[in-house]
Nucleic acid binder design. Sequence first.
DNA 1: TCTGGGGTCCTAGGACCC
DNA 2: TCTGGGGTCCTAGGACCC
Length: 434
Amino acid sequence: MFAVVDCDNCFVSCERVFQPELKDRPVVVLSNNDGCVVARSNEAKALGIKMGVPLYQIMPLVKEKNVQIRSSNYTLYADMSNRVMSILREEVGRKLMEQYSIDEAFLELPDLAPGAPSWKEWGEALVRKVRQWTGMPVSIGIGETRTLAKVATWFAKHYPGYRKVCIIDTPEKREAALKILDVSEVWGVGWRGISKYRYYGINTAWELTQRSASWVRSKFSVTGLRTWRELQGNSCVDTLLTGRRQTICTSRSFEHGISDLPVLEMHISNFAARCAYKLRKDHSVAQWVNVFLQTNHFNEKQSQYDPSSTISLDTPVNNDFEIINAALKVLRALYHPGFEFKRAGVIVGGISSDQAIQQDLFDEFTPEQRQNLNKISQVMDFVNHRLGEDAVQLGIQQFPVDAKTGKRISYRDFIKHEYRSKCYSTTLNGFIVK
DNA sequence: TCTGGGGTCCTAGGACCC
DNA sequence: TCTGGGGTCCTAGGACCC
């Protein structure tokens, strides 16, 4: 059996833990730049506010109904997530717990010991424990496969009678649940594919299970077949997490389009440095660096230009200097004046352990030279950890002065967070906003 | 005017081999 | 001028997840 534990309206719940005045009120959390709604309280959902809707489109409703708005505060959410995850890890043991996202984890459940409480009782106790220890409301679904556990979660969240824990453990319950569940709610059926399911007359999850394996394979490929088998109770998503990440990406949209190369260089340097930092934290190195730029897709009058290119590194590395240099090389090759770029990013990949680096015979640096570059990055990490992010940076990461105001500006100034809450759980007084 | 960010996996098609 | 069959590997793009 599998259980999936899912935080209810995760980001809104994080905000509510430290701002009890948000309780029972409609609350939404926004994406970077305060662009779109990425989390909603139940009260906000009841007002018809949809996931992903741009803030400006719901502004009249926000004012009329006094909807509370928060910018995303990932420092807070990541810390709250870690607290919840550590409880779950302790519950079943490290090996049987897979964190699937910031707000969700799969637990593999061992056979029920004789005399032990039922999974339903266990689940309800776990919901209470997480709530009491962290303040986070969670729902739990249990089933024979991960997909069925996700189905159960949907019922746990939508039917108060389940008291946040729903179990699908018999063929009868499975049939009853799948007959109610719209196929679009099934894990693995996305919004692009949904019209195809409807076209073939499949509207409920149950109707999908009634087709033959070969038919599903021919229409929806192996991924569709996998979902079909999981819905039958045949577990075939073996393990979700393969350990080391295969790619690491840092990207942002900008409040305003950027056409100046030096400003882009500053941003790309910061994205690259962030990727290098994530690599070091994972004890990984990357073998290639990709840079991409995008113009504003919503502006139909503007001609679009979305270049992207990848550069291979002679030796896999994780120090700021080499990752930034590679990224800047790509950026300068991609850059064309006359375009306003609204979004940009750096992806690093070909990731492997920093303990087993394949040396290159024609490497630009000797092992000693590279070791020095690595040491500088490590010292910078140490200082930044002690004194706060961005305490020390490479020069290129700072844009000297703003042409209009003459003031020194940081890359962070290019991202809007008008309604950001405090980092209650990660700074001593909770007053410092990162 | 304002429209997110970070991942994985699969497939089709092209380049290459004999 | 005619122009096969059977492979591997890589990549771009698209689907999906949260």
